[in-house]
Design a protein around this nucleic acid. Structure first.
Length: 507
DNA sequence: TTCCGACAGTGGGGTCGCAAT
DNA sequence: ATTGCGACCCCACTATCGGAA
């Protein structure tokens, strides 16, 4: 397949807002792909090439000195070969090797093709069609049921492989894609509710479990062979030997477990997320050990459990993991759920996850069978600047720089403001328009990226908490900040202080 | 006809390994 | 030894389409 065919189809997809039209265009494209081209095309469309990490980012691409051709000659196979070479470039001289590969590829591409290739390598194609829409297109092109394609994609964790089976195999081949120990599946995700009681209303009788502030893990075991995967199915087995050792001691031969891992301090309290990540991200074992907690069991000794209700899965989980089980209890009583939530918070954890007891394990979906509940804090902060948005926010002042009041001048001028983070979340189109009109009237100066304001506007911000920051002058940064609304009734002198926010660290 | 589930997009914080400086 | 980049952990929220009710 010529690259231009793919690029033209992507342009057609981007040009329409109709999902049905996107699906139609993608289905026609997939129908033209040869069997061995299918995973390449799927990878490029998802902006997630099948080679995995390429070592190509925004900086590297924008520093290239590239020229293009007017004549379109590249095929998707040509592109795949270059991506292969990029993925394998490592060691001394790899940066210049990548530069050579990219410069050469750019010179063989037309301007449109290079634009497409740049975006797909950066992971941001923005055609409005990712895994969800592409999945429907695969079903359309192959004549298979969307539900069958979806299930195969979730259980194989690989849309490219699924597309090959759907488009070139039989219906039985597609139906035959199942759980396989050693091949990670997309993890089940959770919706959000404000309180444990509200969560219970969505789920009915539920298992209410601690929510820990660590990293999701999926562990596969066959005998002594153990593999550990992240939420995004990256294999991190070599980074967590202590978890491998623990899973080897469990009383079963074959297992697929779902859980969370984090580091503890001496008294058994959770370490901050940053410290867990420090250990989690490192190859070599450090003195800080990671501990697993398991909350679901997808397979045990030849028996698939994903279509069994949670109640059954938990029974089996209890039997298999014993002390390594996530704390929790089964209830339909809102008071009991609230009690468990308070207990989790008192122990230093994030909150709870409320899980419908009769629900199956729906891999890769964010349904309402699992509902997470975390406390939300709100503070009044001052807008120091706003950055120009991108994509659909192009031309709008979007991302806010947020400051806390420093009444004593501990971090600068008395009565001044200390930047503690940014946010672009929670803004409606109307609010974006208002910011874009209003902020220039308060402008002090600007750069190509941002407009800086007189510190007058007060905005109410919700956060999950604060964390230590090596970058911000107050030594802390907001975690998951989002806009709740502007507070025209307040002046900047009424804003919350940096001392108030810093105090959150020590609790 | 209205409602709502699913999806894509818009970016935030930090930490690591690695190659270049 | 330090710096910058890319990858990848955690994540909330709004707008939109189109099928369900």
């Amino acid at each position: 397949m010529k690259l231009s065919v793919l690029v033209d189809a992507a342009a057609e997809v981007a040009a329409t807002s109709s999902r049905l039209a996107k699906i139609d265009a993608l289905a026609r494209l997939l129908g033209q792909a040869a069997g061995d081209e299918i995973p390449i095309v799927v990878g490029l469309l998802l902006a997630s090439p099948r080679q995995g990490r390429l070592g190509v980012g925004w900086r590297g691409l924008s520093s290239l000195d590239v020229g293009h051709t007017d004549e379109s000659t590249l095929t998707v196979d040509d592109v795949d070969q270059v991506l292969e070479a990029l993925a394998h470039a490592s060691g001394a001289g790899s940066v210049s090797r990548r530069t050579d590969l990219l410069t050469s590829l750019a010179s063989r591409a037309t301007a449109d093709e290079w634009e497409f290739l740049s975006r797909t390598m950066l992971g941001e194609l923005r055609t409005g069609a990712l895994a969800g829409v592409l999945l429907d297109a695969i079903a359309r092109a192959s004549g298979r049921a969307a539900a069958s394609v979806r299930r195969a994609a979730m259980l194989s964790g690989d849309l490219g492989e699924t597309a090959v089976i759907a488009l070139t195999g039989t219906e039985e081949d597609l139906e035959g894609v199942g759980l396989r120990v050693g091949r990670p599946v997309l993890p089940m995700l959770a919706a959000t509710a404000a309180t444990p009681s509200a969560a219970l209303e969505l789920t009915g009788r539920a298992s209410v479990e601690y929510k820990l502030d660590g990293a999701r893990i999926q562990v596969h075991r066959t005998g002594d062979e153990v593999s550990v995967y992240t939420r995004n199915l990256a294999d991190i087995t070599h980074r967590v030997p202590e978890i491998v050792d623990i899973v080897r001691t469990l009383p079963a031969h074959d297992l697929i477990l779902d859980g969370e891992t984090l580091a503890l301090d001496e008294d058994g309290g959770p370490r901050p997320f940053q410290e867990t990540m420090s250990r989690f991200g490192a190859d070599a074992a450090r003195d800080l050990a990671l501990r697993p907690w398991f909350f679901d069991l997808l397979h045990v000794d030849g028996r698939d459990l994903i279509d069994e209700p949670l109640s059954t899965r938990l029974q089996e989980l209890d039997r298999v993991v014993g002390p390594w089980r996530m704390p929790g209890s089964v209830t339909e009583d809102p008071d009991a759920a609230e009690d468990l939530s308070r207990e989790a918070l008192a122990a230093g954890h994030e909150g709870v996850v409320v899980k419908a007891l009769d629900s199956t394990y729906t891999a890769g979906r964010r349904g309402k069978s699992w509902v997470k509940v975390k406390p939300v804090l709100t503070y009044d902060l001052v807008v120091l600047a706003a950055e120009w948005g991108s994509g659909r926010r192009n031309g709008m002042l979007s991302n806010l720089h947020l400051g806390a009041l420093d009444p004593t001048g501990e971090f600068g001028d008395p009565g001044g403001f200390v930047m503690v983070g940014k946010t672009f979340k929670g803004l409606t189109d109307e609010l974006l328009r208002w910011q874009t009109e209003t902020f220039p009237t308060l402008e002090t100066h600007r750069t190509p990226y941002a407009v800086f304001l007189q510190p007058e506007l007060v905005v109410e911000i919700a956060i999950d908490g604060v964390q230590r920051s090596p970058r911000y002058p107050g030594g802390i940064a907001l975690r998951f900040a989002r806009v709740k609304g502007y507070r025209p009734d307040k002046s900047a002198a009424d804003a919350d202080t940096i001392q108030t926010l810093r105090a959150l660290l020590r609790e």
